[in-house]
Design a protein around this nucleic acid. Structure first.
Lengths: 333, 333
DNA sequence: CTGAAAGCGCTTACAG
DNA sequence: CTGAAAGCGCTTACAG
């Protein structure tokens, strides 16, 4: 591998001149620059990332910390990861992807060995065990998922409370007065998946405001439990509409309804909350709040990049709950 | 951040002694070792990754190169990524995940800046444009997906030819003499997704051997085209069994069959080829060849690790096509 | 069993 | 507009 010294020699200049030509941090005469560029091309030179990181304290790498929980429906995760990787690359960063179960320990390790300039946390819980670590590390952090204490971080999430409300509104406007609400599994609540109760509480409150009756269930996540549960709920035959905040349930719903000959929206109105891509993947014909994983992922990266470039501004943090938008797929009446 | 010099000072030893205590590469007296360990603990010292990489020419990072193709069904990818990340961590490596569209360029960049010790390529095509780059870089490479020329690499894949054969055998043994074969989309063939034609050719040949008649279709990948196509194929009403080698089609099949009241296996036998996890995700009740993404991902990492640890042995490469195993879910008769 | 020093490949004040 | 040199934080022969 050619190093900067080889390039300098071939171009007949000093190493510093090559370095400055590379960074553009000082003016270089046209002739010199051309000789350097030629030498770089001929030798196929690329600066050594480790050496550069050592000299500049900058790695140009972002750590992406992802958890995969058994009680969540995995394919959803990829929808965040890809846009994050894309946004990072656009800003000149690569992605170190960390999936370890022991998130706090991994975070500590990656941070203190200075492998990354900043960190994106996905699927952040109410009292996420990674946050105490985040507060003491050097690198700025950005997250998707709203924790209890957002101080010091850029936080992005869907406004789940408003999402709960608009879906209830949507059904109330159409005259529904008794509905079924299916939320994430109990485990999600237990481990502090705040999006679960933020959505649910707001939905229940709003329903109460309308004098609606709500039959609330924690949805299952694994087959065949999912199908069985949906069947039982349908057997109970309560309500004229269903709000589903559970990926596994909504994905299974079309086939169960089909099998039972339940017609949407004639016999049952259905609304959900999932991303466009997810809906497409499972061919879901339901009106739903768009969860915008791509938007959230990109926002998280962009905010992080700002902090990495301008550490002075480290005080100014952003908490943004993006407004829900309903995509009407005609599954209500 | 504490560095090795701070630790040395606090422990009253030289930097080299600290370094050796860390690596275990030479004997250290018990007393000295304990003082060093205490100092490390008290200062919260972790070696700087960039400096270490610079000194050792080892990053302890593996580059994972993933492509996401529109004509493929994305959730399948995650099944490879997670086991790879796990296996890497077990061996002491982190994962730099690269998803850029221009794979060859990204590979060149990551390799020549020495950001990784080795590379895993996913979803390798017959004449994959990343392979010429792979051949000239310093780092060893391991791949999932069988290319035309495997020389110089560790390659792991399912034995798709044998897979095609065993599924045909399975149907032949049950007396089927006219079947439908649904393969990946044409685009997959065009870009050199060899698994598509390896499976298909072997299946067609084997069927010919039995004197079977085969109706072959390129399956769609996006809804609603998938459902429409399945409908058309069923309308044609040819054959008593169906072999599906297409994730999107097999995922959509239960609901389409349900909607039409086609009973499996009474009226139609169905076999597929997909992973256990995928089957679970979509609740697929079909007998199928297990594609073992976790096993393939782990094998790729393990082989890579061997080469990274022992570059001398760089000549010995492994091409392993794992034998298909049928999971009988009772969807044939 | 331990230390002093060279070296890995960059960047960046300092000097001219 | 350019160069010589220090320094980033490690590891590892060399020496004792």
């Amino acid at each position: 591998m050619a190093n900067i010294q080889d390039v300098a020699q071939r171009a007949g200049v000093s190493r510093s001149t090559v370095s400055y030509a590379l960074s553009g941090k000082r003016a270089i005469s046209r002739k010199t620059r051309e000789r350097i560029e030629a030498a770089i091309r001929e030798l196929g030179f690329t600066p050594n990332a480790g050496a550069r990181a050592l000299a500049t304290s900058q790695t140009l790498v972002i750590g992406l910390f992802v958890h995969f929980f058994q009680d969540e429906f995995s394919p959803a995760m990829l929808q965040y990861v890809l846009p994050i990787a894309d946004a990072a690359r656009e800003a000149g960063y690569d992605i170190l992807m960390v999936t370890e179960t022991d998130g706090p320990k991994a975070l500590e390790r990656i941070s203190s060995s200075e492998m990354v300039d900043g960190v994106v946390l996905l699927n952040v819980a109410h009292e996420d065990p990674r946050l105490p670590v985040m507060r003491k590390i050097r690198q700025p952090g950005s997250m998707v998922g709203l924790p209890k204490n957002t101080e010091g971080f850029d936080v992005f999430d869907l406004d789940f409370e408003e999402s709960g409300r608009v879906l209830v509104d949507h059904l109330a406007e159409r005259g529904h007065r008794e509905i079924v609400l299916i939320t994430p599994r109990k485990d999600v609540y237990d481990r502090g998946g705040a999006y679960a109760w933020r959505f649910q509480n707001a939905a229940l409150q709003q329903a109460a405001r309308y004098g609606m009756r709500v039959h609330w269930f924690h949805g299952e996540t694994q087959q065949p439990a999912v199908n069985r549960q949906i069947g039982e709920i349908l057997d109970a035959n309560v309500g004229t509409a269903m709000i589903v905040h559970n990926d596994a349930v909504i994905a299974a719903l079309p086939s169960v309804l089909h099998a039972r000959g339940v017609r949407v929206p004639d016999e049952l109105s259905v609304v959900g909350i999932f991303s466009e891509d997810f809906g497409q993947l499972f061919n879901l014909p339901y009106t739903a709040v768009e969860t915008s994983p791509d938007k959230l992922g990109r926002l998280a990266v962009q905010a992080l990049v700002q902090h990495m470039l301008d550490p002075e501004r480290a005080g100014a943090h952003r908490v943004e709950l993006i407004a829900p938008q309903i995509t009407d797929r005609g599954s209500t009446k």
